[in-house]
Every structure is written in structure tokens, then in C-alpha cells.
Amino acid sequence: MSVPHAVPPGRHLPDYARDLVRMHDAVISGTRPNLRPRALVSRSWSRVLGLGLTADGRNVRAALAEEELARRRHGSPLRNVIGELRQVIGAVSDASPLLLVVTDADGVILWQEGASPVLRRAEDLGFRAGAQWTEANVGTNAIGTALAEAAPVELLAGEHFEQGQHPWYCTAAPIHDPRTGALLGVVDVSGPALTLHPAIGALVETARRLAESQLWRGHRQGLERLRRSAEPLLAAAAGPALLVDDDGWVAHSSGIAVGDRIAAPADGQVIAVPGVGACIPERLADGWLIRPSDRGRTVLLDLDLSGSPVLRLRSGDAEWHRPLTKRHAEIFALLHSAGPAGLTAQALSRALFGDTEHLVTVRAEVSRLRRLHGTLVETRPYRLADGVRLAVHRAPGPS
């Protein structure tokens, strides 16, 4: 999803920035603005006003202690791509007064890079490593609003809620784990408002794509290392087997035709692999060896919606039941109704949210579902996997 540009085509940047400041002043004072805020900005301002933040002062900016910041940096998968992001932005920042910021999923700034004058101005604003730049902390800003909207955001001058941020533009995009769809953080480029260029959005999108592609490359390299380390065991294994990592991604398969991923294994839990049946996970040093436990090939599911959603599985002699979130239960029920034809991401978004504007959310939810329950659900289109039979039991209606 590309970053929407904050400046309408044909508008003169300095004039438009001044108009946005006037718009902000009018809205905050309760008068009618000559320029209406964008829908994105209106939604964000409504959220922060509801939180009781003030526009004419500086809201609280408590930075994390160095120990906590170091812990978050070490625990973030983005630490493996920050070097590449610095190279992409660094070539531009030498010639332009801009700032690269990378946060975690909580909006905490983990890394900053940029020209010294811009870094000093950012420091004066409390825009520094360890600070949390969510809407709840500092009002409408590209980082916090991108997190709230789950979408790329570009804001200019008076579109920021706090007046102290009006001299800035900021352009941000969420970064997701390409393996799981989980939100990892946000990449942001900020700078003086009157230096905003249409290419900034493309720069941020390039940074996002680079981060996710590098994460995916690291993932593939990890699977290859797992395969090489387990080669002696695989050579000695009799019968069909799978080698997977801790998230269920397949490093090697022998005699079992599956896709790229199964359910994340866990000690003592039987895994259902469609087309294979119940399988037993065996822990290895860096992954799992998965082998069939019996000859059963059909996976029978019961989705119980009569109370808190529960999914029950039976395959051969193996049985288990797991609680479901309401969203995952709704997805299973929709795919059951859709039948073998399944649903596209757009159709699933429309069924869940009433529109097609939630594709990122839909893909993330299905990715989480597949991580928990494996390839019971297939993709492109979303559908129940071959060999899976689902029955849905709903609460009885009023008599």
C-alpha cells in the first residue's frame, strides 16, 4: 500500500502549509475552518481529543530508561535490517534535512538517523530514542496515526495535533513480519515542513519493502541452516517426515505434500496436517521433526459457537480442542459457508468489516490463524484445506 501524499496536486507547499495551520487553529477553537481536515486527520483528532490531550502545549514525553531501550532494541527483529535502512536514507539525508526513525510495535523510537541540525530540533521536541510516539502520548503524528490506522500516513504542518509539531512533516509506514503478518514497528521519515517532497512517500515505501524483504531473506536462510543441521537425522528417518522451524515453516519435506507452513509445533501436542492426518512433533535443537502418528488422512473439525468459540479436531486416534478468538471463529464460519471456492482477501474484508479497506488487517488475522492452527486454512483464495471437514454448531435461536 503506497503512502498517500499530504499535499494535493497543484498546491503550492508554503501556502498549503499555512492553510493547514489556520485550519488547525479554527478547528481547535471551535470555529468553522476554510479548509476541511482530511478524513484521516479528523479521525485522529477525534481520538486524541477524547483522550484529553492539549493542542497548545506539550503533552507528556517520558523516555524509557537506557536498559529498557537496549532490551527492546535487542528483542526487535528490525535490528537485523536497521543497517540497510540507514544506507537507503543516509544517501538522501546527506543532501536533505531529514530524519530516519524506526520504532517498535508500541511506537517507542528505537533508532534515529539524520543530519545533526534536524536531530537537535527533534531532541527539543522530545522526538528521540526511547520516547513513545503514539497518538495517546503526543497526539496526531505519522507514527502514532499509522499504528492507529494500520496504514501508511503522511502529515504536514497543521495536520499534527500539537502546535509544537507544526513546523514538521512526517511520513510513516508500518512494517510487518513477512512470516506471520505481525506488526513489528514503523519506519518514519521526518523533516522541516517546507522541505517535504513528493518523493518522500516513495522513499518510505522503499524502506518498508526493503525491511520486509530482508526479514524474509533472513527467514529463508534460517530454514536452510535448519535443513543442513538436520541432514543426518533426515537421512536416517524412516517414512514420511517434515522438518519445520518454531513457527511451523517447512524447511524440508519427505513423502508429505504440504505447503510452506503447518501449525506451530509444541511439546506434547498432536498436529493436524491436512492430507496427512495427525502428526507427532519431535523437538530438535533448532526446529521440529514432524511424522504421522497413524494412517488417518481426514481432519474432522467441529466449530462450537454455542458459547465462547471452541474448535475441536479429530484425526484418526488423535483429538484436541482449542479456544478461538471471536474473529478467528468468524473466519472459520465464513470459509465453511463459502465452500471449496473460498474467499478472496477483498471478499473476506467485506464480510468481516463491510468494506474492502481492511486488506492488511484481514491478511494479518489469517496469518495469525494459520500460525496457531496450521494449514487447516489455505490461501489464494482463503479456503478450508483439502481433507478438512468442518461442522459448525451455533447457539439455538429464540423459540
Score class of each variant (00 low, 15 high):
residue 397 G to H: 13
residue 398 P to D: 15
residue 235 A to C: 04
residue 95 A to V: 06
residue 348 L to N: 10
residue 185 G to P: 08
residue 253 S to L: 13
residue 226 L to D: 13
residue 171 T to S: 03
residue 196 L to W: 03
residue 323 P to D: 15
residue 182 A to F: 00
residue 289 L to F: 00
residue 130 G to A: 11
residue 295 R to A: 10
residue 210 L to N: 11
residue 209 R to V: 11
residue 386 D to S: 14
residue 78 L to P: 01
residue 151 A to V: 14
residue 382 Y to A: 07
residue 263 A to V: 00
residue 168 W to S: 03
residue 205 E to L: 11
residue 24 H to I: 07
residue 307 G to Y: 00
residue 169 Y to P: 00
residue 249 W to K: 13
residue 198 P to S: 07
residue 119 L to A: 08
residue 28 I to T: 03
residue 91 A to S: 01
residue 82 I to P: 06
residue 241 A to Y: 05
residue 246 D to S: 09
residue 334 L to A: 14
residue 30 G to V: 02
residue 382 Y to S: 03
residue 55 A to Q: 09
residue 54 T to L: 05
residue 283 R to A: 01
residue 313 L to D: 01
residue 54 T to V: 12
residue 336 H to K: 11
residue 205 E to I: 01
residue 383 R to T: 14
residue 234 L to Y: 00
residue 181 G to C: 09
residue 275 G to Q: 01
residue 89 I to F: 02
residue 356 T to V: 14
residue 323 P to W: 15
residue 40 L to C: 08
residue 284 L to A: 01
residue 353 F to K: 06
residue 201 G to D: 05
residue 88 V to W: 04
residue 145 T to M: 12
residue 135 E to C: 11
residue 167 P to K: 04
residue 154 E to T: 10
residue 25 D to W: 03
residue 379 T to H: 02
residue 120 R to M: 08
residue 207 A to V: 06
residue 293 S to Y: 00
residue 1 M to Q: 11
residue 96 S to W: 02
residue 18 R to L: 13
residue 293 S to C: 06
residue 229 S to G: 09
residue 80 N to S: 13
residue 68 E to K: 12
residue 23 M to K: 07
residue 91 A to D: 03
residue 355 D to N: 14
residue 310 V to G: 02
